[in-house]
Amino acid sequence: MGSAGLARLHGLFAVYKPPGLKWLHLRDTVEMQLLKGLNDFKPPPPKQRIRFLLSPVEDSEEKGLTLTATSVPSLTNHPLVRGPAFTNLKIGVGHRLDVQASGVLVLAVGHRRRLLTDLYDAHLTKAYTVRGLLGKATDDFQEFGRLVEKTTYDHVTRAKLERILSVIQGSHQKALVTYSNLDLQSQEAYEMAVRGLIRPMNKSPMLICGIRCLHFAPPEFLLEVQCMHETQQQLRKLVHEIGLELRTTAVCSQVRRTRDGPFTLDDALLRTQWNLHSIQDAIRAAAPRVAAELEKSLRPLSGTQPLPGPAEPQGSAHPSSASGLEP
């Protein structure tokens, strides 16, 4: 039955958005695939309709007609008459990804869409890998934008890049403490910092919790960024600014989200897996993790046991050591 299939669909799951696809288009594709799966279920047996038909009376002494009750199948609920059982689904999209960006995109189906609001309010970090290209600058910070400037990059070394990165990280950590509205001298702040839960609880500019260089082979370099309240364009701008700090220019050739809150790359479904069964399985697998994560982040002071905080590997234990760039 389709409704049973729908009942198992309420929940969150992650898909892998390929670059060059709009998130709205992706959502519509997923909806179409789900509807296809739901409508493929066998329709219920046709309802019987009671009709009183005229029939001659046999046994009685006088000849006559009587009404006999017969049930005939009713075509009212035939799939060809009624049309498809499901015509639209409510699917919500989590933190957006713009067209050129790729990576983990969280979708929610049915009444669990409100979990997306909870996820948003939890202000969890997201992880990105950002690929940069030294030596040129474009107007939109992307690789194929209009070229603005070309520069040399022979003087750039990995050490120089990492120095810049640590400066950026430090300044952002300072901002993080400012926006989290905590008194650093308090026991409460200490406990939260130990558990890696210091973060702003309302709107703020982009905050980077951790940034490091994964790969450096000029002109290319690959960064891993853990951040919150970002947009993909801000990350591209970050690459541009790193380029300027390095006394050269840089464009961003790829922005890819590897983690969105509790959802990692391994949970993300590829384009070929966007069908009812894979999505149902993914939803069932993700449900306990999402619940645990929300529980932990929405009630930060409920447990006294210090937990390892995977959300913020860098921690915020040394907030005062940073200085330099402002975000």
């Binding site: 309709r49 009713s74 075509l75 009212t76 035939h78 060809l80 008459v81 009624r82 049309g83 498809p84």
Partner: peptide, 24 residues
């Protein structure tokens, strides 16, 4: 919708049995 009438019209019933998609 034609749903209301399908049980009362022989024409519609026969069309459905032929495989015509009335909902379209």
């Amino acid at each position: 919708t034609l749903q209301d009438y399908v049980d009362h019209s022989e024409t519609l019933q026969k069309l459905v049995l032929l495989g015509v998609n009335l909902s379209q």
